[in-house]
Design a protein around this nucleic acid. Structure first.
Lengths: 251, 251
DNA sequence: CGTCATGTTGAGCCTCCTCAATTATGGTGG
DNA sequence: CCACCATAATTGAGGAGGCTCAACATGACG
């Protein structure tokens, strides 16, 4: 079955959220289609109201919003195993939908709302997805504590730490991140020019590789120190035992 | 029963989230205790790990976090009918708990985790609370688009608009907001001094009342224009029909 | 070998911050 | 009713970080 190709990050993710293995199987069976997108393409358009959720199986995407002047505001990045637009399903488009863009070539699984309704009758799966939403909220909260308060170097360092951590949780240990400086600027709210200067500072500190045209982290410890980053906030896999207890108690 | 006193904002809130009336009754029956706090008191302490959720029945609270230097970062405000610390229940303290502080005298209902577990076996209630979480996330997202990007006047205006809108959704039409300039500074990430100057600008524009020692909105239209505020993002009550349809379909 | 997107550099300006001092305001005890 | 105090609000002056504008470099790709 094609639905099993590339499903392992999703399995890991749902397991870390406390969903039993058979829930994952059932979820995967609801995937009727799998799509691929190339870098820069829109995975979910700005006016998209298709009644389906997308799960990222491979690659990196971001959700963003447009300013009146056409500028792009990146609100979050998605990594394999994460839902791209679960909020649209839950809130039924009560807010102008965010668009989702592929930052690298990527693969996406599609599930119809109709099938989601059935899946959520399983309480274990429903709470796992609720937890996934709450983790996303926690990420936003963390970001809010830096954005608008921290200096440019803190904001940039934090962004990089967050992405390294989230990718690492699902096996991707690469030191190189697939973001352009423009992406970093749109995600941190800084100007491209200042992001460039900030990255040069980080290079001078031997935290980032001096190689141009790529963001490669050489000294992660130091980067986390600069960002004031606390990985525990996002450390999903360590929580598995906690959910297990909870599910048991509920059942 | 005391549990019914002050329950009407909660009823409104849950109704707007699509929960049927009997769900609300059952939820209210799980409230074993009701507490009152005076302004400035902590409703939930920074290290608090008590296995219970708090629902704000009356007054205004905020959730915050401390910086290393002791500074306060306000992440969100709570209004009657909203949960103060639902995230703690869902994620089981996987993150260092946020503290919650009373901004005015207030009343809080307490429900034990054990009882929550039972309540959530009702799918309609579970999805209503999931939606509540998602709305909170949407609020964070909106805030992120302003914080760190907008000018001081936009940030302050947006904050005020958001609170007016959320209070208004549950019947509180007062033009006066119970925030000190310090609260506004801690919530927007601006310095107190600059918040003061920004508020003076808004007063000069006849948007805020010139009365000192109070933030009173005179010209809400203009305030929303300055903030680029779109009330639809938070307009819960208008969504009732949507959830009703959804619940019907699911059932 | 031209074109386009990304990355780099410089200069001037503006917003917001910090530090420091002063003025309400409200509460408390005498 | 007043002296006293803590907190909040206000005002001024100087400085720093980040923005804008504008040019130029570099690499990817056809």
């Amino acid at each position: 079955m094609f639905v099993h190709c590339g499903a392992s990050p999703l399995r890991l993710k749902l397991k870390s959220l406390g969903a039993p293995a058979d829930d994952v199987d059932i979820l995967l069976r609801a995937v009727k289609r799998r799509l691929t997108f190339s870098a820069q393409e829109n995975v979910v358009g700005e006016g998209d109201t298709a009644p389906q959720v997308r799960i990222l199986l491979a690659g990196t995407t971001c959700s963003y919003k447009r300013k009146e002047d056409g500028g792009r505001i990146i609100l979050s990045f998605h990594h394999p195993g994460e839902f791209c637009d679960l909020h649209r399903y839950v809130l039924r488009d009560s807010e102008p939908a965010l668009a989702v863009q592929a930052l690298t070539d990527c693969t996406v699984a599609v599930i119809d709302y109709r099938d989601m309704d059935g899946l959520l009758s399983r309480p274990t799966l429903a709470s796992a997805l609720w937890r996934a939403s709450m983790l996303e909220t926690a990420v936003y909260r963390e970001r809010l504590t830096r954005t608008g308060r921290g200096t440019a170097i803190v904001r940039v360092a934090y962004l990089l730490c967050e992405q390294l951590e989230r990718r690492g949780a699902f096996g991707n240990q690469a030191r190189q991140l697939p973001f352009s400086q423009i992406d970093v600027a749109d995600a941190t709210g800084l100007s491209v020019v200042h992001v460039n200067r900030t990255i040069q500072t980080l290079r001078a500190l031997n935290v980032l590789s001096p190689a141009t045209r790529a963001i490669e982290v050489l000294d992660r410890k130091q980067l986390e120190k600069i960002a004031g980053f606390d990985g525990r906030l996002l450390a999903l896999p360590t929580l598995v035992s906690k959910w297990a207890v909870q599910v048991e108690t509920n059942g």
